[in-house]
């Protein structure tokens, strides 16, 4: 089920969708969206971004990723935005 494109900026606050089911298996997050009955297996960076989706802003998430991974801030910003948009379209997160 596509949620459609929503304008997401560095100030957008992101939380995990309350309906999702998830489990950490072998250090990777496995996320099930009940509405679509789709299952996603997140890689290491996506798992960390997913963990950071606790109501903080995309900007704060990017800062944390730059801090923890060997990545340029511009690349982290672009990738984090793309991933959050994708997770929103898949019904995994809610945006405020």
């Amino acid at each position: 089920m596509s949620r459609g494109k929503k304008k997401i900026s560095a100030d957008s606050r992101v939380s995990q969708h309350p309906d999702i089911a998830s489990r950490t298996i072998d250090d990777q997050e496995v996320v099930v969206v009940p509405a679509t009955r789709k299952l996603q297996i997140l890689n290491e960076v996506a798992t960390r971004i997913w963990e950071l989706c606790d109501g903080r802003s995309v900007g704060d998430i990017t800062d944390a990723i730059v801090e923890e991974f060997d990545v340029k801030p511009s690349v982290a910003r672009r990738d984090a935005l793309e991933l959050v948009e994708d997770m929103h379209e898949r019904g995994m997160v809610v945006i405020e």
Binding site: A21, S22, R23, T24, I25, V30, V32
Partner: peptide, 8 residues
């Protein structure tokens, strides 16, 4: 079950 990694 949660701690053991059961999801479904």
């Amino acid at each position: 079950l949660h701690d053991a990694g059961v999801l479904f």
